[in-house]
Design a protein around this nucleic acid. Structure first.
Lengths: 224, 224
DNA sequence: GTCTGTTTAAAACATACGTTTGACCGGCTA
DNA sequence: TAGCCGGTCAAACGTATGTTTTAAACAGAC
């Protein structure tokens, strides 16, 4: 290992292990032995385990947020004043994700899983890091969603965005677990593109559902 | 503390701490000091930390699965041969959850969060435990879903069920985190019943969305 | 009163963790 | 050649974890 691919080998190993097992459940010793580097290398190159986690996210998120920004530019230009539709906005997002240059075949799914973990696993430092570094494209996406669903009240839209985030983050973060639990015996495809192709219509339909109270059979369920 | 509310105090503290911080991030010392019991009490009463985790789930899940089973009995009896609709099935589930006697006001949301963690956090022992103990009501729910959506292919239904689970578990588990991220400045209601009233129509609409390929603007997104 | 199951207290156990240290190597410049 | 310096390495550091052990109290049942 002539000079230093050490940093990349650490990042690769960490990315995969984090995705498989979560952050707290992955030790530096697992990472360094998978990457075949010395234990001290992590602290030497990154400073701390938390900083390594940030670096794993930054390596993916920085180019992605640039790609996404371009996709939104292009979309808004194409719509020429008119606000993009919900479907267009969602597809711009997923296509940006899918089109990202991958290090390996599992690239996107690993990163989706990591994003899901970032939400679910309550790592305060990570949330703070992501908010500081990547709030801009996130806010832009939120604004597009708002403009694409003017018929929704603020509260309805707020909750439905939560539902969308949930379905997405959770599905992506479930890795192999859900497949086992659902006792899925059918040979199910696993590429992120195909999952996304199924997810987007689901989300779009949910976002545009008729108002809650028109469908609910029991308006005010009683509680004990 | 005359005889033994020790067990319950441990369960209460563990439940809340697990929901707040996850399993690995919660130590027995945190639990016993919050519960104001001796450290050794956990291993005395439960045997191990993993067994404590199981007990936390069992305390909630056992009565819930009984309630749910009854609700499904009642629903199927009411439908008299015809398979219940999707909306009916979803409402039977949410009403069972909402109707469960609560230990405190945060009861359901804490448990939803725990269920979400059980999926995301890859604790092998937990998944095994849940599968062994509670596969029956889960399978029944799956069967009802299948009968209520005969128009879906197995694969479509499989993924959409994942999306539903995701939206539900994630939303219920988000507690305060998402509210911060979404910078929600509107005074948003927080009772689980009201969230459910918004969630169910979202899910039902998503489940019954038109097939993916009919909506997708890019049939086969290219990958590098 | 005695026995049995709980509970507390305090301490120690072995293990795993993130982090730090100091020696060492190899190529670079001066 | 000498000196430096980024990088690597084995080893150790301090701390926290889950678990176990010892002892002593305390309660209720027989």
């Amino acid at each position: 290992m002539a000079q230093s691919d050490t940093v990349d080998r650490i990042l690769d190993a960490a990315e995969e292990l984090f995705a498989d097992r979560g952050f707290s459940e992955t030790s530096l010793r697992m990472i360094t032995s998978k990457a075949k580097v010395n234990l001290a290398a992590v602290n030497y190159h990154f400073g701390s385990k938390n900083a390594l986690i940030h670096a794993v996210f930054a390596r993916f998120l920085t180019p992605f947020s640039a790609t996404l920004d371009n996709a939104f530019d292009e979309l808004e230009a194409r719509c020429d004043g008119e606000p993009p539709t919900l479907n267009q906005t969602l597809w711009a997002l997923t296509e940006s994700a899918v089109r990202m240059p991958q290090r390996n075949e599992k690239g996107i799914s690993i990163f989706m899983r990591l994003l899901g973990l970032a939400y679910t696993q309550s790592q305060g430092h990570l949330r703070k890091f992501l908010e500081q570094e990547y709030s801009q494209p996130f806010s832009r996406f939120m604004r597009l969603l708002k403009e694409a669903t003017p018929q929704l009240s603020s509260v309805d839209r707020y909750w439905r965005i939560q539902f969308m985030l949930g379905a997405t983050a959770f599905t992506m973060s479930s890795s192999d677990a859900l497949r086992d639990i659902l006792q899925n015996k059918l040979g199910v495809e696993t590429t992120v593109q195909e999952i996304a192709a199924r997810l987007v219509p689901f989300l779009a339909a949910g976002m545009q559902a008729k108002d809650a109270m028109l469908v609910s059979p029991a308006a005010k369920p009683s509680v004990a």
